[in-house]
Nucleic acid binder design. Structure first.
Lengths: 362, 362
DNA sequence: ACTCTCAACGACAACGTTGTCAAGGAGGGG
DNA sequence: CCCCTCCTTGACAACGTTGTCGTTGAGAGT
């Protein structure tokens, strides 16, 4: 009487329980348990109840990995932005996440830091992790490397179109917004306008510059090269570039800051120089943010619908995931010029509820 | 001559290639290809070269899902914060993501919106997705539900300790920071201090309030209940609560805003009332952020090392992942009181490089 | 010539699910 | 009584990897 056959099928050890353990406990097949978990029909009420009880008792949790491997669907999307720390991008991510959450999807996030290599690496990692779709804020450089991938996995770009590659993009009216804002500046009578940007190679920045330029051209104003500054990728760099602007023999009368980081650097430099806004120099920015409303004077900006940008990108991605035949659409969201004090307008904060007749006390 | 045996093993159709396709192409076993992919030894240079060539030719990419299922490791961690839109949390996430990236890990993020149910749901989803670890900013409520989970998966909390549950936490000196800042306010001679918070049930807020209170007690100042306001979870709510503070018969001389959102609401209300800071009312905040430096006067705050908070949490998580025996540690990071103008101090912005002798021009 | 070692490689099972197909029994209609 | 249908259930394979173990053959040592 050997001990052969005494198979060590001891499942009692501390291991996270699987569907097999549940089946064994109830005395049914794997498939039956699977059916209960997925709410499939074809299970008697009696059996279902027993299976559910066993699941509860054992503390069984389905393994999404196995499910995904089998079902070829991970319910996960990848999001690559340049830097989550930037309020504009974190708001986009929030828009995406909310939409994903509503559809039972999770979100993998990555910061590319505007580095193409990092972007590529993350794309590779996320693809290997079998994400069901990818939303990308393309870094400077060529997105040509995505060509092959695009036919295998749904892809959507946000904020900027990719380079050397065409795919669905969700972006804002950069040109139009910059054009309108610049015109407004010109209507105030300013002529020496400076344009300060993070990176003129960025599509968004190019569009904004085009709008800026168009307004200038239409007004017949010559734009001096030294009034256009590039490379202000951080607040500090923007701050430095602003100072450079002010040591010029002909100082700018107004500064167009091409994004939210730049405008903060500009503000900092101006404060340091004890210049008054807008009397000594007017300032406007592209992209609104909470604090733009709280500095003195309040900042005039082009407000971008960052949250909607993310949400629409997600909506577009999901629609392409269910119906890949959709052609590469481009969605352009409207922007709004928000006039406050920094452009030279008289700043009239809207009265809010609590001020109805209460303004008295100092 | 029947057609039996003519098995339809046609792998040429457009399907993403697997390790099997590579093996077939080269004429070796699955295992050999696997070895090449993983850099295992036991493969001749010749074979390795041919396998690599086939991988390249077929555009093969390993499937991380299958790998993870087999290897019981996903190289993914889950991060649950309350709202990525809040600069404090997005910076924490950045700290985590950088550390994860350095270790070849990816990050799943989720916003709980301070809703316990949402937090639970995400924990459940992430666990099912087999994340290797979890970093959580616990929402208000009890984290007791994590008790069972904690023995199965490494868990680290950031910013706040969980309730009804003990686990490793990475947080800042809330009490100490608030205490020091409050003392500073008292040294300016203010006596009627108001404390405005998002939610007094939050551990961080409780600690900050305790520090605030301690300073007040030590100074022998009675704290009137109406000087403590709760429930300012958004900028707008903080704004409203601030107005409430000002219709009181005895208005506060200084306001302690318990977080970065609150301080923005406070600022907005004060602006609207045309009060001067700090002459009419002083303002200080907990948590520093870029714009605190740009409002007029600049904001005096307790600066929290948000990035380090995230980074340390990740470091702690990874160390627990490799060595689960580690007891539940608590890491407390130091804070710094940053004196600027809003507390009543004379605001002296530090001279920066560009101002060396340039200040002249107006 | 024989054994021994070691490198190179492969067959097989397993990770935890779910889709496919088929079986078994109950019930209804002729 | 038989056939057909429907409901419930289960066996098996497959998803794409990798760990275990076994096989083969070349070369070294005696």
């Amino acid at each position: 009487m050997s001990r052969r056959g005494c198979l060590r099928k001891d499942n009692s050890s501390r291991r996270t329980p699987t569907i097999r353990d549940v089946a064994q406990a109830v005395g049914v097949s794997l498939k039956t348990v699977s059916r209960v978990i997925n709410g499939d029909k074809g299970v008697s009420a009696e059996t279902r109840k027993r299976v559910l009880a066993a699941i509860e008792a054992l503390g069984y949790r389905p393994n999404a990995l196995a499910r995904s491997l089998r079902g070829r669907k991970t319910y996960t999307i990848g999001v690559i932005i340049t830097d989550i720390t930037n309020g504009f991008f974190s708001t986009i991510v929030r828009g995406i996440e909310d939409e994903a959450f509503a559809r039972n999807y999770s979100v993998l996030v990555a910061n590319s830091d505007e580095l193409l290599e990092k972007e590529k690496l993350y794309v590779c990692i996320f693809v290997e992790k079998q994400v069901d779709g990818l939303i990308i804020v393309p870094a400077t450089g060529s997105q040509e490397y995505l060509r092959d991938l695009a036919s295998h996995i749904p892809l959507v770009f946000v904020d900027r179109p990719p380079r050397d590659f065409s795919g669905p993009v969700v972006q804002v009216e950069n040109r139009e917004g910059a054009y309108r804002l610049t015109r407004h500046l010109l209507e105030h009578g300013f002529e020496r306008l400076a344009f300060l940007a993070s990176d003129l190679r960025l599509p968004t920045v190019q569009e904004r510059f085009a709008g800026f330029r168009k307004a200038m051209d239409e007004a017949g104003i010559v734009l001096h090269p030294e009034m256009v500054k590039d490379g202000a990728k951080t607040i500090h760099e923007a701050y430095r570039k602003t100072h450079e602007l002010f040591v010029l023999p002909l100082r700018p009368q107004a500064i167009f800051a091409a994004n939210n980081l730049v405008v903060q650097g500009v503000l900092k430099a101006i404060r340091e120089r004890n210049l008054r806004i807008p009397q000594d120099v007017a300032v406007v920015g592209f992209d609104d943010f909470e604090m733009a409303d709280l500095v003195q004077p309040r900042l005039t900006v082009v407000a971008q619908p960052a949250y909607a940008l993310g949400k629409e990108a997600a909506v577009l991605l999901f629609s392409r995931m269910t119906c890949p035949s959709l052609a590469g659409e481009t969605v352009v969201l409207p922007v709004e010029v928000v006039l406050r004090g920094s452009c030279g307008c008289e700043d009239a904060p809207q009265e809010e509820m609590f001020l109805k007749g209460v303004r008295s006390s100092t």
